[in-house]
């Protein structure tokens, strides 16, 4: 009797600790978003005198002005938005589909070079990104492939990180018996992958979609070097352009641009967050 009582007390104590920690972390997570959205409705001078504040003297008026500045620059935000959407969506689709295919090849079949290939993939992951980028952009200039959105999209077919992740996922959750039963039904190998295996990987795909889309959407360095024509700009380039005015920086419109940039990410994230909540089964033991 007494024992259960202390146990109960203990678990209440633990619960209190858990909630305090979680609430603090939650505030830390949300704060930057609030600051960003609030600053989009503040004037540049207000932001410069105190950047971290949830107060704006004339929110609507400032928002309109910031919007005018953002829209009054010589580039078109809607073009940037469309370009960003094209690049990120295509990148995500290509990366996810071909990573699943490659990881399936690594998982389901036994072939001579399999281990060597897997080793290669892990090896590629380890190459410092900065320098591959230097070589990549010099090559792009040599073959005159700058200002082509495809140059940012097609390389996503080879995404070693994701292949590695997908392989781990398949090992944890896919049983080859399902594949075998597909074969007995007379389905071809490619069909089995498309119809049976790919749908089964949905939870892993959803989380990877979030990671890839976010990474591609926020990518600045490579697009900034490769895309030099206005009609090819992505949204982050336009925000960086606002930021580059060395003599005067329009912070209000920068925050507006950043807010606009983050909203599509929030939409995608909220839509796919079910899989983050439910989790992706990815363990060491198959059931």
């Amino acid at each position: 009797m007494a024992k259960t009582a202390t146990l109960h007390k203990e678990s209440i104590g633990l619960k209190v600790v858990i909630y305090i920690v979680c609430v603090i972390l939650a505030i830390l997570s949300l704060l930057p978003f609030f600051i960003m959205f609030t600053n989009a409705t503040r004037s540049t001078a207000e932001i410069q005198s105190s950047a971290i504040s949830l107060y704006s003297a004339h929110p609507i008026q400032n928002l309109m002005r910031n919007w005018k500045v953002f829209n009054g620059k010589s580039f078109d935000p809607s073009t940037g938005f469309v370009n960003s959407l094209i690049v990120s969506t295509c990148t995500t689709i290509l990366a996810v589909y071909f990573s699943c295919l490659t990881s399936y090849a690594l998982f389901a079949y036994e072939w001579k070079l399999r281990d060597a290939f897997f080793g290669l993939i892990v090896g590629i992951m380890m190459i410092p990104g900065t320098v591959t980028m230097i070589g990549f952009y010099q090559a792009a200039y040599q073959v005159h492939m700058t200002n082509k959105l495809a140059m940012l999209i097609i390389p996503a077919i080879a995404s070693p990180n994701m292949v590695f992740f997908m392989r781990q996922y398949l090992q944890a959750s896919l049983s080859l018996e399902i594949v075998d039963s597909g074969r007995i039904d007379g389905a071809g190998e490619f069909m089995i992958f498309n119809r049976i295996v790919f749908p089964l990987m949905k939870p892993a795909i959803a989380t990877q979609c979030i990671f890839t889309f976010v990474g591609s959407w926020n990518n600045l360095f490579l697009p900034q070097i490769l895309l030099t024509k206005k009609e090819k700009y992505t949204l982050p380039i336009e925000v960086a352009l606002l930021n580059s005015d060395i003599y005067q920086t329009e912070y209000g419109s920068i925050y507006l641009g950043l807010s606009l940039t983050v909203i599509p990410l929030l939409i995608i994230y909220i839509l796919l967050s079910r899989y983050i909540v439910e989790g992706v089964a990815l363990g060491g033991v198959k059931s």
């Binding site: 010589s74 580039f75 952009y137 010099q138 200039y141 600045l220 360095f221 900034q224 070097i225 030099t228 024509k229 206005k230 380039i237 960086a240 352009l241 930021n243 580059s244 060395i246």
Partner: peptide
Amino acid sequence: VTIIATTNQAYQPALDAALK
């Protein structure tokens, strides 16, 4: 017109390549 922001030092490498 080609405008590249100087942030991240992106302007000079791109300009150098284009000049070449």
